[in-house]
């Protein structure tokens, strides 16, 4: 029962692989037997569809559009959120108001924002902007709590040493908060992918989101599932990359 690293690892790896395999088999069986109706195809059919060159071309184009929008949105949202968090740390009087604004902007439902952005920013920019909003909120929430995460004794030392706000921010708050900021980025990455997909629902020309809605309306079940799996895959990839980054940061800054 004890947690000897080497001993516990082997069976748990086996169990993990077993778990993923069981999930895949379950999805296949439900589809094969038609337990969930015609909307749930066998997984092998979906893979068979993806193997076709025409499908790969279609999915590839959609993937490029969505990944680009998600990445651009992630960067834009992350940078803006960090700047706003830094502003609220340097000018504490603005803090409560900026936090309320972020909460309100976040609470504005995406369905309200989508058409609004389409009319103001255009079809091409909308997925990026929705992704930026989704990612930016996650980063902002993480960053504001991150900049407050230095402990009281450390702050007292900085106060007594006569450190100004900028110096405290640079030498204490930012490095102390970096692990939490990276945590926020880890949440923001899948949020950016989701934001890009939802942004595409409001009338973008191409992308995974467009493919999802058109396949749903045209009853192209295999294509629908393939698009969904692609969306899940890029989301998972973004998450895994940032979890790796988080590991590196935690080793260095804790």
């Amino acid at each position: 029962m004890s947690r000897v690293p080497g001993a516990a690892l082997a069976p748990s790896r086996g169990l993990a692989a077993g778990g993923v395999l069981a999930l895949l088999v379950l999805v296949e069986i439900v589809g094969r037997l038609g337990l969930a109706g015609p909307g749930w195809p066998p997984l092998t059919d979906v893979f068979g569809y993806v193997a076709k060159p025409s499908a790969q071309q279609l999915l590839g184009r959609a993937l490029t559009a969505t990944a680009t929008a998600a990445l651009a949105g992630f960067l834009l949202g992350g940078v803006v959120a960090l700047l706003v968090a830094v502003l609220s740390a340097l000018v504490p009087a603005t803090g409560p108001g900026l936090e309320r604004l972020a909460a309100v902007v976040h609470a504005v439902p995406l369905i309200a924002l989508g058409p609004l952005l389409i009319t103001t920013a255009g079809r091409e920019a909308t997925p990026t902007l929705v992704a930026a909003l989704a990612a930016g909120f996650a980063v902002f929430v993480a960053a504001t709590s991150a900049l407050g995460s230095a402990n009281d004794a450390q702050r007292d030392v900085f106060t007594v040493l006569g450190a100004g706000r900028a110096s405290t921010l640079l030498r204490l708050q930012l490095p102390a908060g970096l692990p939490l900021i990276v945590d926020g980025l880890t949440l923001a990455a899948p949020a950016a992918v989701l934001g890009a997909v939802i942004g595409e629902w409001f009338g973008a020309r191409r992308g995974i989101g467009v493919l999802l809605v058109s396949s749903m309306q045209n009853v192209q079940t295999d294509q629908l599932w393939a698009a969904a799996l692609t969306a899940a895959a890029i989301s998972l990839l973004a998450y895994v990359l940032l979890v790796a980054l988080r590991g590196a940061v935690n080793r260095r800054f804790q």
């Binding site: 402990n151 004794a153 450390q154 007292d156 030392v157 007594v160 040493l161 030498r171 204490l172 490095p175 102390a176 260095r252 800054f253 804790q254």
Partner: peptide
């Protein structure tokens, strides 16, 4: 100043 908590920067 020095406190009971060392308050060193861990990084």
């Amino acid at each position: 100043v020095a406190f009971q908590e060392h308050a060193l920067l861990p990084w």
